[in-house]
């Protein structure tokens, strides 16, 4: 029987952060600098033009700043805490994940949940400051806000699975540095962090439609700024949900194979 109170394992990453004030200060500094630079960049780009790729200046700045804030949700420094999957594989401490009455996949999910909730607090605090300072625009209506929240939740769910796939690679390769770099670049590019997807050529937008990345950030942020109208929201939410289901099944399969791998290699 699974442990009832094991959900408290979700506090691992937030606790680690709260016990590292310098890391929190660095996080605050990094977030502030990124928001200021991104807002300045997009304001500068729109200085000489009105509406580009279907977005006006305020929409573009709002999109870019929200994307920067959203990245904080799942971008904590687990490496410093020796708590990445690759480190557990390297040090052989992954065996302890298989020696507890809590399945490794459940522990991983709980830990990620804690991490995402903690990151969400940072993102919400940043959002509140940016909203008060007029850097980002509020949603156009309560309906838009509601759909955005739903879409953002699904987006984070997809993000969780994408990160999980990368971590699961460690069970086969013992290294995931290159995959992680590719993921971060692809994630930022294809989810619209570097620039909203409408600035890219059609073939690129079509290609990215076959990948899960735009379901993580691009869809919820586009709903927020109004680039995707509410009338299209249902279809977009369905696509996001489909990615959640597909990735859930895929990662479940990988967990089973990873367990067999640990069993055969002995950690």
């Amino acid at each position: 029987m699974a442990a009832v109170h094991a959900w408290r394992a979700a506090r691992v990453t937030p606790l680690g952060e709260l016990h590292s004030p310098p890391r929190m200060t660095a996080e605050l500094l990094r977030m502030t600098v990124q928001v200021v630079l991104v807002a300045s960049l997009w304001r500068g780009l729109y200085a000489a033009s009105g509406t580009t790729a279907g977005l006006d200046r305020d929409q573009a700045v709002t999109y870019a700043v929200l994307a920067t804030l959203a990245l904080r949700v799942r971008n904590l420094d687990q490496f410093a805490g020796r708590d990445t999957v690759i480190q557990h594989m390297h040090f052989g401490t992954i065996v302890y994940w298989y020696l507890r009455p809590l399945a490794p996949q459940r522990y991983y999910a709980l830990r990620a949940l804690g991490e995402q909730l903690y990151g969400l607090v940072w993102a919400l605090a940043g959002y509140a400051v940016c909203l008060a300072a007029g850097v980002v625009q509020p949603p156009k209506s309560a309906a838009v806000a509601g759909v955005f929240v739903l879409s953002a939740l699904l987006g984070q769910w997809v993000m969780y699975y994408v990160m999980l796939v990368i971590d699961q690679l460690c069970f086969w390769t013992l290294r995931n540095g290159a995959a992680m770099l590719i993921l971060i670049f692809a994630q930022n590019l294809l989810s619209g962090v570097y620039a909203p997807l409408w600035f890219f050529p059609d073939w690129f937008i079509t290609m990215s439609g076959f990948l899960p990345f735009q379901a993580t950030l691009s869809v919820p942020l586009s709903l927020y700024v109004g680039r995707i109208p509410l009338s299209d929201a249902g279809a977009q939410l369905l696509v996001q949900a489909a990615w959640v289901v597909a990735l859930a099944l895929f990662t479940r399969l990988l967990w089973r194979r990873a367990a067999r791998r640990v069993i055969s290699q002995g950690g």
């Binding site: 606790l15 680690g16 016990h19």
Partner: peptide, 16 residues
């Protein structure tokens, strides 16, 4: 857990 005080690690194991 490398980043946590020992007692926090004990508490997490208690919950698990």
């Amino acid at each position: 857990w490398w980043d946590l005080p020992v007692r926090e690690s004990f508490a997490i194991l208690r919950d698990i």
